[in-house]
Nucleic acid binder design. Structure first.
Lengths: 369, 369
DNA sequence: TTGTAGGCGTTATCAA
DNA sequence: TTGATAACGCCTACAA
């Protein structure tokens, strides 16, 4: 990597001209350009492989797509030539003719989420070695964007679709089902997934939070989180668990939109000013919890003695913040891997014995509770 | 969103059978399935739009692709019908025939990086409204993966490619150039970008760090970071700046691989044990800096009096950690937007007047320095 | 400004 | 097990 250290002085026209002269761009029409090595040569096509192997193109196609249908010797020869020439199927021609592409669409609610990215990465780890390409989209928690993206899938003809979440809008559910491809939902435990699911119960996470507080001897507890989506489910479980364990929920603070640490700070401040007697707070995600933890320390409170804080999400950073955030969560990368395996199985035409799969929620206890 | 709260009890075969009975999947061959509404009907094709508009298919194609070449009245009618029917061009047929797809490939070194994701998001904000789809890939800082992915581009025929980084391997640079499409590199300021660049000087960032320390009156300074890639550039600049300002670099600690907060903690510990007199430390990224900051506080040091810490990356979380991390960085989302605009311009066939664009480095001073 | 003819590269279908 | 033929849906080239 070179670095001219010139950022302070924006490049002059002269700089640019010098650069362009040194390295001319290929012309837009693909014709060779002086100085550009002739590796812009058209990549080999299936007919070329067929010619080299002395077979017809369809046999090459079969050797690649359904190896078992081609005689051993021919198959070996074809694959050897494919290897040698670096032949790669044109994915568009393939998708056009067969309606099957090697693209797997993955939608995350928010790319900034460490956990969602981990799940997508895990899924990619399983699928990419098999020749599939992940196409990642961000729905930004917006139904409108989700709907648009799902519509665009019809023409894209992905081999499968995965979401870090579940699809709630009935029209979108129908559109997805109509694609006739494997659909993977995650991150919740709905009664009626569209097709396949690797999920966990958000309600259970709330219950576990309450149970944990009860075990640790806290009685007056609070909740910080969104009143919609997964936050609402976690609150529902938290209420159930609190009732069952005889805890007293002294405050429920709601947060809007994509939550941040600042929201968590503010919410804890509000909560304490309204009800100073609260002993333990469950935050519906680790960002909120981290904000709450920092605010508590800023106020000079000792954790967990003055106040206990419990988050959700197994966030990395929160482990390092003294005294360490106790958090409930799942192994997101593993969830992604499981989702990938199930998708793969379905793309191969096998039905997984189990289209619904629950991943385990674990509580990682650190210093904050 | 429903949640049966059943994750603790893994679903039984009965659960599954009940679910499957309630919502049968469409069959793999796309034929209608009982209970699935007939919206699996084939989407409209260009011929259908042409028939409805009373024109030939090519006119519809032109109305969409080159509106200026179609008579006003016809164009309006065609676009109205396209709107009404929800017609969408089949991207594979388009790519196959024209060699131009609506996919823009975006490669990040690491999906877990807040800053890289922001840049990709910014780029998407500009491109998606224009009908382009971002296909995100992760190179994981691996040359092998980078090479594989670049090779796969040849067949994918993306409309453009963007990287959160620069391509160093000459073979990959040639392969990219041979694609004949806009290539955007970022996050550095090399002498010879492949095509277009929105970057900043990593060397300058190091210089600025040294200058900041000098202004604040620190004399004995240290560095924590990688010895390769961008870390090495930042160190180079830091050394230059230190020399120019008469600072004394008392220690340079190197870190391997993808850095973490724990690396930062450990490095600061090492540094202090070797050279307790160090007054200020520049960390090549905010994760390292955050670890260092936490370690300093754990050791009971006051910031910035006992030790000053300066990071790189404008990390969000680091703002919230008392006393707040001072950090040098860029506006990553804005970098992404600029990159998107330039890519767009090139895809429209215009040459941007300026293929190289420098974004500003800013120092955000908080409590740690 | 509009239309006709044909092909992009692959694979489904059917025949041998 | 292999091959010939045609078609996927669109857009380039050329003609009118």
């Amino acid at each position: 990597m070179s670095d001219t250290g010139a950022a302070k002085r924006p490049p002059t026209i002269d700089d640019v001209l010098r650069l362009r002269a040194a390295e001319p761009l290929p012309s837009r029409d693909g014709n060779p350009v002086e100085g550009v090595p002739r590796d812009g040569a058209a990549p080999p096509r299936i007919v070329e492989i067929a010619r080299l192997a002395g077979v017809s193109p369809i046999t090459v196609s079969r050797a690649l797509r359904h190896p078992e249908k081609v005689a051993e010797a021919k198959r070996r020869k074809i694959l050897e030539i494919v290897e040698r020439t670096g032949y790669a199927t044109n994915p568009h021609a393939r998708a056009l003719r067969s309606g099957q592409s090697n693209i797997v669409a993955a939608f995350v609610s928010n790319l900034q989420s460490e956990q969602f990215c981990l799940a997508v990465q895990g899924c990619g780890e399983v699928l990419e070695p098999q020749g599939y390409q992940l196409m990642i989209g961000q729905t930004s928690y917006s139904y409108a964007k989700e709907t648009t993206m799902i519509q665009s899938l019809r023409e894209m003809r992905p081999a499968a679709v995965m979401f870090t979440g579940v699809i709630e809008i009935e029209e979108n559910r129908r559109a997805l089902r109509a694609l006739g491809i494997p659909i993977m939902e995650t991150w919740a435990y709905p009664r009626d997934p569209i097709d396949m699911l690797v999920g966990f119960s958000n309600i259970d996470s709330g219950r576990q939070a309450a149970e944990h507080f009860a075990e640790r001897g806290y009685r007056r507890v609070g909740f910080i989180g969104r009143r919609s989506g997964r936050g609402a489910l976690r609150l529902t479980g938290f209420r159930e668990g609190a009732r069952a364990a005889g805890l007293d929920i002294v405050a429920e603070l709601s947060v809007d939109g994509v939550s941040s640490m600042v929201d968590g700070r503010r919410a804890l401040g509000d909560l304490l000013s309204r009800n100073a007697a609260v002993e333990a707070v469950f935050c519906a995600n680790d960002l909120l919890a981290t904000g709450a933890l920092l605010e508590a320390r800023r106020l000079g409170m000792r954790l967990p003695d003055d106040i206990a804080i419990l988050g959700f999400g197994h966030n990395d950073v929160a482990e390092e913040l003294p005294p360490g955030l106790t958090t409930i969560g799942i192994d997101s990368r593993d969830l992604g891997r499981q989702a990938g395996s199930m998708i793969l199985q379905r793309m191969r035409g096998e039905m997984p014995s189990e289209p619904i799969c629950a991943v385990e929620l674990t509580l990682t206890r650190r210093g904050s509770s």
